[in-house]
């Protein structure tokens, strides 16, 4: 049981990082991306290849993953600097679909559909460490960074862009730089999550980095409450433990378990959105039309 809960907690921490970083883009800068799984994947492949080919050092893997994902996030920042709202959603959708194809085809780097197997357990300075501890530490650091950022002047700039972009521009804020920085931070965070994911699973393939995964991460942010510190984390824990918890229901016939779980899961999401549109921790009064 402990091992089971530890595994769930590790995944929850990893997805907590994903949701928290996406929240920086969505909740603070108003950049709606459904391509977060792309950067999750980039980080996972980078971390996995490093561990497989060079050294299974967890810290190094996370740093490299963050650099790769953060660096390539310029692909995402490019449209982010040009368009807003629905347009950006569609641009990120395009990026996600292209990336899925590339992940499948670039077999030398990603292993394609077959994926990368036998990724070694994470080490720090030659000592094996549990991924749970790593993931929790990374999560705390990222939440801390988010909190500091949200309070500082950078956070105010981002919120100004989110609420009234033209006004922020008129006030002399450097919108492009702020947006690019927010995107780079979010994507580097996703890369760290990816490296942790690869080390935790010891197997990765393209099926973990599809549009469905991006949508799930987005749902975590929305369900928890955008623009709040703890909301995305709560959303991640909830959306991961709901299906896991449902699998304990003893009375469903084996062939219908999947469908019943998915129906309850879908219905829960919809009802939550109808009754708490700003998310669980979101402030109902400040819910806005994006």
């Amino acid at each position: 049981m402990t091992a089971y809960l530890a595994n769930l907690a590790t995944l929850a921490a990893i997805f907590g990082i994903l949701a928290a970083t996406l929240n920086v883009a969505v909740g603070y800068a108003g950049i709606f991306s459904v391509a977060h799984a792309v950067f999750f994947g980039l980080g996972a492949y980078a971390g996995a290849q490093l561990a497989l080919l060079v050294v299974p050092d967890a810290l190094l893997a996370m740093v490299v993953a963050a650099l790769v994902a953060g660096g390539l996030s310029l692909c995402l920042a490019l449209p982010a600097l040009r368009v807003r709202g629905e347009y950006f959603v569609a641009a990120s959708l395009g990026l996600q679909m292209m990336a899925t194809t590339l992940f499948t085809e670039a077999k030398g780097l990603t292993g394609g559909m077959g994926g990368l197997v036998g990724i070694p357990r994470p080490m720090i300075l030659g000592v094996e460490v549990p991924t749970l501890a790593l993931a929790l530490t990374a999560l705390v650091l990222i939440l801390l960074a988010t909190w500091l950022m949200a309070r500082g002047s950078f956070g105010r700039t981002l919120r100004a862009i989110r609420d009234a972009e033209s006004a922020a521009e008129a006030l002399g804020k450097n919108i492009n730089a702020a947006k690019a920085l927010a995107v780079a931070f979010a994507c580097a965070g996703a890369g760290v999550a990816g490296a942790l994911f690869a080390l935790h699973m010891s197997f990765v393939n393209v099926e973990s980095f599809t549009l469905d995964q991006s949508v799930l991460i987005m749902a975590m942010v929305i369900v928890g409450g955008t623009g709040t510190l703890w909301g995305p984390l709560l959303g991640a824990v909830l959306l991961l433990s709901l299906p896991a918890g449902l699998s304990f229901l003893p009375f469903i016939p084996p062939t219908e378990i999947g469908a019943v779980q998915q129906i309850l899961y879908g219905a829960a999401m919809t009802l939550l959105m109808i009754f708490r549109p700003a998310g669980l921790l979101g402030d109902m009064r400040t819910g806005r039309k994006a």
Binding site: G85, I222, V223, I263, G266, M273, P277, A278, G287, R288
Partner: peptide, 21 residues
């Protein structure tokens, strides 16, 4: 409730899951 763009998105996503299953 003045729910945002993505609130609608998540709600609709939930309904799609229900219908599909």
């Amino acid at each position: 409730h003045e729910g945002g763009f993505f609130t609608v998105f998540v709600a609709a996503f939930g309904v799609s899951l229900v219908v599909q299953n």
